[in-house]
Structures are given as C-alpha cells and as structure tokens.
Nucleic acid binder design. Structure first.
Lengths: 202, 202, 202, 202
DNA sequence: GATGAATGAGGGTTCATTCAT
DNA sequence: TATGAATGAACCCTCATTCAT
C-alpha cells in the first residue's frame, strides 16, 4: 500500500488549515497568512511550493471536502437493501462527523456562497449536488408517488441545509444528533402522510 | 407627514446598494467602491458623509434588513385570529418579497456568517431571532403538545433557513412560492401527525 | 472710530480658532474642520468666504500673531528712557499675556517649524526677528562692549525661546512670571559681569 | 561580537530616514512615502516588514534618539571628577554632534510637540528629562546655594532648549560651538555671581 | 525545500476644495 | 451669506505573489 509522501501530508495539512481559517474568519476570505498560521508554518511563501496559488489551494480544499462527502454517501449507500435505508444513508452522510465539524460546515457555506462568482466552485457544487440528489431520488421513487418525489427531495435537502446553517450559527442550540433526528422524523412524517393518502379506505 | 430628506433617500440607496454588493461579491466583504458603483455614485468618499464608516453602513444595512423582517411579521401577525394563522404569518413573513430577493437572502447569509466575529451583528441577530421564535412558539403552543413545540419551531426555522439557502444558491431551481408551499405543507404534516397520535382511539 | 465689520469679526474668530486648533493638534497641521469647530461654525465651507484658502488663513493667523508681538514691543519701548528699560521692554513684550497663552506659544512653535518649508512664513519670521533683535541691540549697545552685543542678544533671545519651549511643553513647571524673572536675572548677571570686567581696579 | 543583521541595519536606516523626513517636512507628520524615499526604498510596503506600523516606527525613532542622548550624557559624566565637570558634561552632551544635526534637533522638537497628544511619547520624554535634570542638579548642588539649584537648572535647560530652537530655525546664524560656548559662559556667570554674593565681606 | 525580503495592487479613510442651492 | 453635497488626491495599511538566498 502506497505510503503518503511528505508532499501529500503537507498538502493535507494546508487544506485542513484552510478550512480552519475560513471558519475563524467568519466566512470572509481567509488570508494565506492565516492559513499558514493554522498549519503551523513559519513562512507564507511555502504555500506556493505545494499549490499553484491561493486560488488553487482553495479549489483543492473544496474538492477534498466534496469528495469526502461523496465518500460518506457511497460508504453508507453501498450496503443498503431497502429504499428507506437508502434515504437514511443520504441523511446520515449529511450528518457524518467529517461533514459536521464547525470547520467543515463553515467551509461548505463559504464554498456555496462563492459559487455564483467562481465557475470552478460552481462546477464542483453542481456535480456534488447532482450526485446526491440523484441518490436521494432513487430511494424516494420507490416510496412516494412520482409527482411528490421532486418536492420531497428538495424539502429534505433544504431541511438538511437549514440544519447545517443553524448548526453553523450556533452549535449550542442544535447538536448533530438532534439535527439528524429531526430530519429523519420529518422524512417519516411525509412518508406516513403519503401512505395515509394512498390508503384512505383502510 | 414628514417628507424624506435627501439625506434619508441617499442613505436608503446606499443601504440597498450594500445588499447588492454583498450579493454580487458572493458573500465576501463588499468593497466601498463596489457599493458606490451599485448606488450610482461617482466618488467613494461620499459614503462618509452619510455614514460614519464602512462598518457603520454595514450595521445600518443589517438593522434595516432585520427591521423590515420584523415589520413583515408584525404586519401579518397583527390581524390573525387562529393559532394556525399565526404560524402561517411567520412563515409568510419569512417568504415575503422584501425578504426573498436574492440580495436580501445573500445579505442575511452574509450577516449571519459575520455574527461570530462582530458583536454588534450578533446582538441584532439575537434580538431578531428571539422575537421571531417567540412569535412562532406562541402559535405552536396551542397546536402541539408542549414537548414538541421546541423541536417543531427549530424544524420550521431550519427548513426556512434551508429554503433560503437553496434559493440563494440557485433561484432557478426553487421559486419563493414553492418554498412557501413546501414549508406550509411540512408544517401541516407535523400537525396531522400530532393530531393522529393524540386521538388514536378515534 | 471705525467699527469692525461683521467680516472682520468673523475673520478674527477664525484666526483665534486656528491658534486653538494648532495647540490642540499638538503642533500637527490643523484641519479646517477642527478650526471651524473651535470657531463654533457649523460648516467648513464658510471659511472660503473669508479666506482664499486654508493656507491663506494660516498666513493671516501668523501675520496677526507677529503683528501683535511687534505691537507689544512698540507699546513698551515707546515710553522708555534708559537703555536698560529698553531691554526690559523687549523681555517683557516676549512674556506679555497675549504672547504667552498656550495657544499663542504653540502657534509660534508651529509657525517657526514651518518656516523652512514655507517661504511666506520665513519672510514673516525674518521681518519680525529682525525688528526685535534690532530693538534689543539698540539697548544692549549702550550697556555692553561692542563685541559682546551680538552674543548677548543671541543669548537673551535663545533663553526666551527656551523659556517659551519649556512653557509650551509643560506650563505646570514654569509660569510666565518665573520665566520673565529668570530672563531678567540672567541679563543682569551678564551686565554685572561686564561691569566687573570693565572696572577691575574698582 | 554579534554582527548586526540585515534586519537591524535596515531598521536603523529607516529610523535615520524618519528623522530626515521629519526635518524636511518642517515638523509636520512625516509620510511613510517620504521616509521610504529618504531611506532609498522603492516600495512603501516594506516598512511593515520591519515595523509594526508607522506609529511603531516613530516610537522606535524617538526611543533611539532619547537613548543616544542618554548615552552621550553617560559617556561624558562617567569620567568626571569635579561638580563643574559634571555640569559641563551635561551641557556638552546636549551639544554633542549626534544631538545637533538639523535632523536630530527637528526630531526632538517634533517629538516634544507630540507629547501632549501621545502618551507613549510623553513617557519617553518624561523619563529622559528626569534623568538629565537629575544629573544636572547633582552637579549644581555642590556649586550653588540649595535654593538656587532649581532655578539654575531650569535656566540652563531653557537656554539649551532655546539654543536648539535657534539652531533648528537657522543653522547659519548659530553654530553648535557658539551655542555651547554661550551656554557654558552663561553658567559661569551665574557661578561667579553666587560666589560674589556668598563672600561679600571678602 | 524553506525563508524572508521586496513589490505592487487595492482598500478604507481623511481632508481641502468646489459647486449648487 | 451660509450650508451640505460631491469630488479627487493623498495616506496608511493589508495582502498575494515573486525573487534571491
């Protein structure tokens, strides 16, 4: 098994530091100096040995973040057998520890907020969102009437985004477990309602 | 009735331009130059005639935004008679036109993202949130079991925040009307579920 | 007797306010806004009705200050009969109340400090200094050997300048009366020494 | 012996350039651009690599200037044996070449003029003045009646300040050597007068 | 590979001045 | 006469990037 090179380790550290810097900056653009500080590097110049530029570092960070997220989804979706488990897999991936640290949440928000003004970010976001919504709909299709699938997927995604936002704003009010519970509960409510409607005579 | 002075008009224009600038900057800190450009002002210095500083302008902008929001709530909540209408009033206020322009949504997100690093923003946010959550719970208390009120309020708020976020990221996918419909629907689902649970014997 | 016009009164107020502004600014260049504030004027634009420009106001202020000083000298020197009184007249003029307010002292220092970089100031300073040193030497010539007159005049002037500087730095340590006393005393010492030397046999 | 690093050399150059800039600006606040120009630096930004800010540079400059002055005093006072030599040591230190360049004199004046509005400067000034006046009085105490020591010290300091001021205003009129001679002479006059008074019966 | 010196662009703010009312 | 809107220049500072060591 290939051992990570020093280069790769340093790159990883800088990417983590970038997320920390974004979080600490309150979603303002992080400065290279701040990133280096959090990475424990003495000089800012060193960044240019590992990344082409600041923009490159930021893009790599977002790719890493998105990749991790898709990895969490794949991990959980791969071993599911029922449609409901498939939906739960997506929900759980959204609230996986790697995606719910304050640094990760802030980075996601920062990332999203920059998509309108940065096409590279927009592409990454688009691809990620497409993948996840497809996965979600795949499960929902077997559980809900066709015309409700779109709304339900949007609603679920919006709820999860909202939970993230609440979490980012004030981690005290809402912990990850509660967020996941509320989301699952919300999903089940819709399912019951659909079931009740489809079997009114029962 | 007092006619707005030139002063007040120009201040209003700058506040609007600030929201536009925040939106266009992708939630990055807007530059004074950009704000002036959107306000149609030739010179950057003029801002300091109307506001003490850039920070002052930003604070005034956020106060205006929050004030408008509370106004929308008050407007709708004032004429309600049933608890359900009260909840709907809050939901509708959240999706009122003045709160759902891309500029307003971006400004809210930017505003929230800066609260951890700006105590003035944090205070405004806290006061606004307190007011709105109180209003929401006042309606929910008469509709749901006491122990569900907190979760329901959080869930509703999170869903609305998420809708806003989706809307901010891509206004094409989700229009305001759909967002409101989904939110109302989600609320009604929870209501029905609670009703079903409380009358199992019926 | 001609009554001062409103124009002249306003000009006088602005000149006084300029001295105050210089003093309060710690000898930094006073801003027009500060000058207007001390003059009790609401708008800064009004200055340009009474003076051609800020520079014009500053020059007029310095001319006024220098003119007042020469007036104090003339007032005292005019009624003297002995050489010693003539010297005392110059000393007393230097420590006249109008020249020893903190505002006046600061203005003098500011004025002097600007002479190397402003030829107008340099001219005013040169003329004033020439007048006063001439007056001083006229008295000293009858009291001291010719070859001591220059040194004595310089020494006296330097001592007074130094007193002013001390006074400007810390009015608590040194009051005007003490400054005048020390100066007079210093002058008398030199006189006695010269007398002793010229009459060694006595 | 430690060789000065590039860092220290550059800092020294900037400090010297600061004094030059103050002198050339006529005691107005020097601009960073001017300082860099006199230091031979192409870019303004570089200053922030060596000093925290412009204010920091100014404070360091004044600390250096005051430190040099105390060094000159210590150098001369250390090897004195008589009280009179002690007084002369202070006088000579005041007129030491390092303290009498036009740049140094202008910097001192600028420095003093800013003490009322800058507490850091005030502290440096206070400490320096306290040290020098103590040294001066130590010598005077053995030469003059106790009640004359205060006046004499003030008088000497004022004379030296005045000489400096004259020198700063016009180096042509007064050279350093003449200034020192006048000051020493003035001191000796007072000494003789005191001696004459204390021995009237002789 | 790593460091720090150096540069230049851009941002916010102050300020004197001009202009319209 | 008096006011305040408006402009543009100048200043200090931050920051990403490049270069030499």
């Amino acid at each position: 098994m290939a051992r990570p090179t020093v280069d790769q380790v340093r790159r990883r550290e800088l990417i983590q530091a970038t997320m920390t810097a974004i979080h600490r900056a309150g979603l303002a653009d992080p400065t290279v100096a701040a990133i280096c500080k959090y990475a424990g590097l003495a000089s800012v110049s060193i960044v240019n040995h590992y990344f082409k530029s600041k923009q490159d570092l930021l893009e790599c960070t977002m790719r890493e973040l998105a990749g991790d997220f898709l990895g969490e989804v794949a991990l959980r979706a791969g071993s599911t057998h029922t449609p409901m488990d498939r939906v739960f897999a997506v929900i759980d991936a959204n609230f996986a520890p790697s995606q719910c640290t304050p640094e990760a949440v802030s980075s996601w928000l920062w990332f999203w907020s920059r998509t309108p003004s940065c096409s590279v970010f927009a592409d990454i976001e688009h691809a990620t969102h497409h993948h996840i919504i497809t996965e979600l709909k795949r499960g929902l299709t077997e559980l809900l009437p066709a015309k409700e699938v779109g709304d339900a997927a949007e609603s679920l995604m919006a709820l999860m985004y909202g939970m993230w936002l609440r979490f980012a704003l004030n981690p005290q009010i809402l912990d990850v477990e509660a967020a996941r519970r509320i989301t699952r509960h919300n999903f089940l409510l819709r399912l019951q309602a659909a079931a009740a409607k489809s079997m009114p005579a029962a």
